[in-house]
Structure formats: structure tokens, C-alpha cells
């Protein structure tokens, strides 16, 4: 499954470690929510990055105290039409100020890319290779935005009321390093 980051298909440097398997000394890892919460302190000591897969029926507020230890949070779209993780993403970015990598996983199709980016995601495990290649095009599909979300795109209301001189921008501000 191709991974898209910063608009390009890239190698995934994270390894998923199943529950019960030992966490390697080195290298970036992703663990389950239960495992992470059980071993948060120990995992936080690692020098290499740690990420967690957070299910979409769990309150992201529970993750808040641990965010400084996390380099990545992967949220889940079990089905294309299950939109819970959009709220989780906005809360992580806009309320809890998470600055690490926020990854969309599961049923991720090109028609969601722009919504995902606007909600704060910056990496995408894409189901179809053709969709991954169309990332750039899909996120430039629209130039008009009404909602002020954390992605920094200028809203129509701000332009109309004279707060911003220019037409809405197309490029979002980068959220994660």
C-alpha cells in the first residue's frame, strides 16, 4: 500500500509491531493503542520515533498527556464513509496542538484527500496506487474554502470581509516537521 507524504509517494520508515511481539531497539515503530498506553513510559524512552494507531471509537483526549512522546498518530477509516477520524484529527491538531505526523489509514481514497488535508492529516496510506499518484491533483481540486480549520487555508469569509486581500490560497501551511 503506497504511503503519500508531503505530496509524494515515499518509503514508510515505520515498522508495525504486533501486540505480544518485542519492540526492536532501533528504528521507527507503530504500536497499538493498548500496547502504547500500557508501556507509554518505557516507549517514551526510545531514541527512535514511536507512533500509535488510535481507533476511531476512542476519545483522543486520552492521548493528550502522551503526545510529547509520540512522533506519529495513525487514525483509522474502517470504511470510506466512517468519518469519525476527521473529528479526532482536528482535535489532535487544533485543540491538543499535536505537531507530529498524522497518518490516515484504512479505506483511504483520492476523493477524501482534500478533506483529510484540511482536517490536519499529513500522511496517507492509500489503498489504490493510481490514487496515490493523483494526490497532487486531488488536493488542488478546489480553491474555495469556507471553513477555518487548522490547515491555514484562507476562507472566503475573510476575503469577502476584507481581512485578506488575496484570493484563497491553494497551498496549506505544513503542519508537521
Amino acid at each position: 500500500m503506497p504511503l503519500v507524504k508531503s505530496g509524494k509517494v515515499v518509503e514508510d520508515r515505520y515498522v508495525r509491531v504486533a501486540d505480544g511481539e518485542p519492540v526492536p531497539e532501533q528504528g521507527a515503530v507503530i504500536v497499538s493503542a493498548d500496547r502504547f498506553l500500557a508501556d507509554a513510559d518505557e516507549l517514551g524512552q526510545r531514541s527512535d520515533p514511536v507512533g500509535v494507531i488510535w481507533p476511531n471509537n476512542r476519545n483522543v483526549a486520552d492521548l493528550e498527556p502522551h503526545l510529547p512522546k509520540l512522533a506519529l498518530v495513525a487514525l483509522v477509516f474502517p470504511a470510506y464513509k466512517d468519518g469519525r477520524a476527521y473529528s479526532q484529527a482536528r482535535l489532535l491538531r487544533e485543540r491538543y496542538r499535536f505537531r507530529g505526523e498524522l497518518r490516515a489509514t484504512g479505506q483511504v481514497l483520492r476523493d477524501q484527500f482534500l478533506f483529510l488535508v484540511r482536517a490536519g492529516f499529513d500522511s496517507f496510506e492509500v489503498v489504490k496506487p493510481a490514487d496515490a499518484l493523483a494526490f497532487e491533483e486531488a488536493t488542488k481540486r478546489y480553491s474555495v474554502f469556507f471553513q477555518p480549520t487548522g490547515d491555514g487555508r484562507v476562507t472566503v469569509a475573510r476575503v469577502r470581509s476584507g481581512r485578506e486581500a488575496q484570493a484563497p490560497q491553494r497551498q496549506p501551511e505544513r503542519l508537521s516537521a
Binding site: 466512517d82 468519518g83 476527521y86 478533506f115 483529510l116
Partner: peptide
């Protein structure tokens, strides 16, 4: 209407 048109958080309720 404007606020809720193509709202990135609420398009898959």
C-alpha cells in the same frame, strides 16, 4: 450553508 458546504470534518456523518 456556507460553513457547512464541503465541511472537511462533517462530510461523512
Amino acid at each position: 450553508r456556507q460553513h457547512l458546504t464541503l465541511h472537511p470534518e462533517f462530510s461523512f456523518l
